[in-house]
């Protein structure tokens, strides 16, 4: 059996880590599938989905490290007019941070509940805000 749900989230800053563990947990709780896997998949290319520990110090380290690796200001080739959009590509750092973080995570479901380590949380990671983002939650199992 497969169940598919869409989540929508607003970001309010250019870089923002938004915990969505409870959103996913609620979808799993309401699912008919009791044993299987839940996939959390982002439908964008300048943001990410990741699992990490929810501590303010770590969130700061994640932001600072990504910023060090991929600075806001650099001579990015993407910064030119894109006829396919009718706009200048102004979000190269978002694309590159997304590449590092990835666009999905997978969590097992046992007896109707997500099985996660005690330090784990699911984050939607915005690298190109402020935007309205769509996240797919697909549950596969029985």
């Amino acid at each position: 059996m497969v169940e598919f749900t869409k989540l929508q989230k607003y970001s309010t800053k250019e870089f923002e880590l938004i915990k969505i563990t409870d959103d996913v947990r609620e979808i799993v709780a309401n699912s008919k599938i009791k044993n299987g896997l839940v996939f959390v998949i982002l439908s964008h290319t300048t943001a990410g989905i990741m699992i990490n520990e929810s501590l303010p110090c770590l969130e700061r380290d994640i932001e600072d490290t990504l910023e060090d690796l991929i600075p806001l200001h650099k001579d990015y080739a993407h910064s030119h007019f894109l006829p396919s959009y009718g706009a200048i590509g102004g979000n190269a750092p978002g694309h590159l941070k997304s590449m590092l973080v990835g666009n999905h995570c997978v969590v097992p479901i046992v007896d109707g509940k997500m099985v996660m380590g005690m330090a784990q949380d699911i984050y939607f990671a915005e690298f190109d805000g402020v935007q309205l983002r769509t996240i797919y939650v697909e549950i596969i199992g029985e």
Partner: peptide, 21 residues
Amino acid sequence: VMGYDLMSPFPLELVEKQMAF
């Protein structure tokens, strides 16, 4: 006509949030 291709509509709530930011 306006030369926008891969763009999509968005709610006014997003405009408010972008202005606030």
